[in-house]
Amino acid sequence: MMREDFKFEICANGVESCLAAQEGGADRVELCAGIPEGGTTPSYGEIKVARRLLTTTRLHVIIRPRGGDFLYSPLEVERMLEDIRVCRELGVDGVVIGCLNADGTLDMDANRRLVEAAEGMSVTFHRAFDRCRDPHLALEQLIQLGVDRVLTSGQQPTALEGIGLLRTLNMLAAGRIIILVGCGVNENNIRQIRDETGVREFHFSARTPVRSRMQFANPDVFMGAKDADESTLMYTSAERVRATIGNAVEE
């Protein structure tokens, strides 16, 4: 298989990870803040600097105002519309969205408003898809909305566990929408997922731990959860990006 047969997207938790993704040969990044919450909208400054420094890798930005569920109030939808407007002003290539109703169906009205606001940009529906009630119906509705791709682990904790549904979704998509496989994808399993699903777009983080450069830290004070490891930072590794892409492309 040829490299151009595939697309690789890196879940980037900051500009540093964006640059590592670009160095490693990724096609695009999904820029997120709040990774422990599953990804939230990054700051204006983060997006602006990433846009300036990404020259060969496309920039997509998650539009998610908070962690937790995907049932959004009218005020939260208004904020998401404003975030999409900002992304357009900054020259972002695509946005990543996803809204559900309380019963686990797609919130078609909210999603339609976000898709319309993003006209001219690529639109990905994120892993809210993995929390929806009926993935087959949801896939058809996303096609109707004009969404370009759906990020999914096959409604399982990891893509490896979701291979069965991923294979089915890829067949049902039939070229009408792109299935983007994510969650737990790495250099060790990407070829198996490729072979067993037929999917050609992959989403992964390729992060590695980096020790904090702080020489002093108060052991009694935590900025987040008590006993969390706040002396280790996680950044995307260009080497891991390159290795994962290589394993996916190789026969």
Rank of each mutant, 00 (worst) to 15 (best):
D5K: 12
A12K: 10
N13V: 13
G14I: 03
V15N: 03
S17Q: 04
G24V: 10
V29M: 06
G34F: 07
T40I: 15
P42F: 05
G45Y: 08
E46K: 13
R51K: 15
R52S: 14
V61I: 13
I62L: 14
I62R: 09
R66Q: 11
G68N: 03
F70E: 01
E78M: 14
R79P: 01
R85Y: 13
R85K: 15
C87H: 08
L90G: 11
G91Y: 02
V96W: 02
A102L: 13
D103G: 11
T105H: 07
L106F: 04
A110K: 10
L114R: 05
V115Q: 07
G120S: 11
M121S: 04
S122H: 13
T124G: 07
F129T: 04
C132N: 10
C132T: 06
I143E: 01
G146K: 00
R149A: 15
L151A: 11
T152G: 04
S153N: 00
Q156T: 02
A159T: 02
G162M: 01
G162S: 02
L165F: 03
L172M: 14
G175R: 07
R176F: 12
I178N: 08
V181R: 05
G184R: 02
V185H: 02
N189R: 12
A206H: 07
V210S: 09
S212Q: 00
N218Y: 12
V221E: 00
M223V: 05
E230Q: 14
E230N: 12
T236E: 08
S237T: 05
T244L: 13
G246V: 01
